[in-house]
């Protein structure tokens, strides 16, 4: 494991149009727009965006990918990482605060809970994008990020990533028996890269 780091990201401005998309709201009700604004503000206050990452070697043989700390059987990942000699593996989260807010409002207003959920989903994607940009700038070439559960990469591989990066301790994110993360607005992913850093 090389280049282990924990980075904190300043919370980007929530994208209200994206929240509307998540809600599948194509209308233009002023009442709903006000509610989206209100929820975006509430969510913004509790976001605590962090990424824990490290670089690992990649060795591919047929459909097996070996990262040094674990190897995994996945034809789609092997194909995706073809040509990469290393990968940046990361865990990202926007923190537990958003889950608490969602729970707090779920008994009061299903719509508010849904809005907050959308704000959380949008924010974690934002954080991954920001981190991805940093990585793209760091390496000569990278491929797009790939997460456990996608294609034929078993969701159980998430457990190996959690252990390798010690995400319980470093991000305060936990994995349930059913492979779901708490806080729920969290992501684990692999970014394939090659060549030395710039």
């Amino acid at each position: 494991m090389e280049k282990f780091s924990i980075q904190k990201f300043d919370t980007p401005e929530p994208d209200k149009r994206m929240i509307k998309c998540y809600l599948r709201d194509n209308g233009n009700s002023e009442q709903i727009d006000t509610l989206i604004n209100e929820c975006a503000d509430l969510a913004r206050e509790v976001f605590d965006c962090r990424v824990c990452s490290a670089e690992f070697p990649v060795a591919i043989s047929e459909s097996t990918v070996d990262f040094g700390f674990a190897s995994v059987e996945s034809a789609s990942l092997a194909k995706h990482l073809a040509g990469c000699d290393r990968a940046v593996i990361f865990g990202a989260t926007v923190g537990l605060g958003i889950d608490r807010l969602i729970m707090k409002y779920s008994g009061v207003s299903a719509l508010k809970a849904l809005c907050l959920d959308a704000a959380g989903s949008d924010m974690i994607e934002n954080v991954c994008d920001l981190f991805n940009e940093r990585i793209n700038a760091e390496y000569k070439s990278t491929v797009s990020r790939f997460s456990p559960g996608y294609g034929d990469l078993p969701i159980e591989f998430q457990r190996d990533i959690f252990n390798a990066l010690n995400l319980n301790k470093n991000l305060g994110v936990y994995l349930t028996e059913g492979m779901q993360m708490t806080s729920s607005k969290s992501v684990t992913a692999i970014i394939g890269a090659n060549n030395e850093s710039n």
Partner: peptide, 12 residues
């Protein structure tokens, strides 16, 4: 003609 948020507002 109405979207999920509107349905939820009415339901609430």
């Amino acid at each position: 003609k109405a979207f999920l948020p509107e349905l939820l507002l009415s339901a609430e």
